[in-house]
Design a protein around this nucleic acid. Structure first.
Length: 325
DNA sequence: CTGTGACCTTATTG
DNA sequence: ACAATAAGGTCAC
C-alpha cells in the first residue's frame, strides 16, 4: 500500500535534516540513500521525512497513539514541536554571527541546524549511553534498549520498529545484568539505578518539575542521578527540558574553546568543574540565552563525519552501518 | 578544591 | 593484519 506524503510548508534554508537528525542529538534516525528519506521514531510513532521545495514532507508508518479524527493535526503539531519550527532560526544565526566571527564562518555549510525538542526519558538514557563512547556504538546500544524493553510499534517491510521504553521497564531488577550481557559495560548499572531513582521520585511528574525549574536547579537535580555528571546533565537540560542556555562541554567543545576562544586552557589535561563552567559562561556571554543551540551548530561543524563532507559521505557512512547487521 | 586512574566495549587508527 | 588508542564522561579516592 502506498502512502501519501503530508506537507508542512517550511523554508529549507532554516531546516537541515542531515545536520539536525544525524548530528548527535538523537540517535534513532536513519537515512535511506535511494529514497532520500529519513526514518525515525519519537512520540511512540514511526516517521518518514523528506524535504522538497520549501516543504517538510512526512508519512506516519505506524503509531501507538490512540485513534483520533484530528490525527493530521496531531501529527503536524508533534513535528512542529519536535523541530521547534516556531523558532525563527535565521534571526538567531544572524545574531550569533554578528557576535562571533568564528561562528560566522563555521555556520555557512551548517545552516538550518535545529535544536530538537526531544522526550526527556529517551534523551536521558541515550546520553548515559553516550559517555566515553562513539556515536556508532551509542546507536546500537539504544536500539537494543528499545528492542528488549520498548513496545513494538509496527513492522514495515518485515522490519520491526520499537518505541523507547518507559522508565518503569528500565528500573526492573534484572536489567543491570541483562544489559551487561548485551554489551553495555559499566553503563548497565547507571541505567538501572537512575531508572530506579526516577521512578521513586515520581517519574513523569519529576521530569515536568525539571522543566519548570531554573536551568541551574534542574541541572543540580539531574546530577543526583547515578551516572549523570555535569556534561550529560547539560545535554538533558538543553535537548529535552527546554533550558536552551545549557551548554554541554565535551572533548570536542573543550578543543574548540581552547583553540579559538580561551587559549589559556590549551595545556590543561582534564576538564575540571571550574574550567567546565568557565567555558559554558564564556559561550553564554557571547551568544546569550540560547547559547546551547549555537554551541550545537559549532559541535556539528566539528563532527568528523561532516568535515569537508557533502551529504554523500554521510550517506555512505549510514549505508555501511546498516549492512553490518 | 584539583588531579588521577579505573571503568566496558569497539570502531578507528597507525 | 593486529595492537593501541580514543570515543560527546563519571565516580572514587
Amino acid at each position: 500500500m502506498s502512502r501519501m506524503w503530508n506537507k508542512i510548508p517550511f523554508k529549507s534554508s532554516e531546516l537541515q535534516l542531515t545536520g539536525t537528525l544525524n548530528g548527535g542529538q538523537s540517535f534513532r534516525w536513519n537515512f535511506d540513500i535511494t529514497e532520500k528519506t529519513w526514518t525515525g521514531i519519537f512520540a511512540k510513532t514511526v516517521w518518514k521525512l523528506q524535504q522538497e521545495n520549501n516543504c517538510l514532507k512526512y508519512q506516519v508508518l505506524g503509531t501507538l497513539l490512540e485513534k483520533s479524527n484530528k490525527e493530521t493535526e496531531i501529527f503536524e503539531m508533534l513535528l512542529k514541536n519536535y523541530f521547534r519550527l516556531d523558532v525563527d532560526l535565521g534571526n538567531y544565526y544572524k545574531k550569533w554571527s554578528e557576535r562571533d566571527q568564528f561562528f560566522k564562518s563555521a555556520c555557512v555549510q551548517f545552516y538550518g541546524i535545529r535544536m530538537l525538542a526531544q522526550e526527556p526519558v529517551e534523551n536521558l538514557f541515550s546520553f548515559i549511553c553516550s559517555q566515553n563512547n562513539h556515536i556508532s556504538r551509542i546507536s546500537t546500544m539504544i536500539e537494543k534498549l528499545c528492542k528488549h524493553y520498548g513496545e513494538k510499534i509496527c513492522e514495515v517491510d518485515s522490519v520491526p520498529y520499537y518505541a523507547f521504553p518507559d522508565v518503569e521497564k528500565l528500573s526492573q531488577l534484572e536489567v543491570e545484568s541483562h544489559l551487561r550481557e548485551l554489551g553495555f559495560g559499566y553503563r548497565a548499572k547507571f541505567i538501572k539505578k537512575s531508572a530506579n531513582q526516577i521512578v521513586q521520585w515520581g517519574g513523569k511528574k519529576w521530569f515536568g518539575s525539571l522543566k519548570d525549574m531554573k536551568y541551574t536547579e534542574a541541572k543540580a537535580e539531574l546530577m543526583k542521578l547515578c551516572g549523570i555528571g555535569p556534561k550529560v546533565a547539560d545535554c538533558i537540560c538543553l535537548m529535552s527540558l527546554n533550558h536552551l542556555e545549557a551548554l554541554p562541554v565535551d572533548t570536542h567543545v573543550y578543543q574548540i574553546a581552547a583553540q579559538n576562544y580561551l587559549p589559556h586552557l590549551k595545556g590543561k589535561r582534564s576538564v575540571t568543574e571550574k574550567v567546565y563552567s568557565e567555558i559554558g559562561d564564556h559561550f553564554r556571554s557571547l551568544y546569550g540565552d540560547m547559547a546551547g543551540w549555537a554551541h550545537t551548530v559549532l559541535f556539528c561543524a566539528d563532527l568528523k563525519k561532516f568535515q569537508q563532507a557533502d551529504s554523500i559521505t554521510v550517506e555512505q557512512g549510514n549505508q555501511r552501518k546498516k549492512k553490518k547487521k
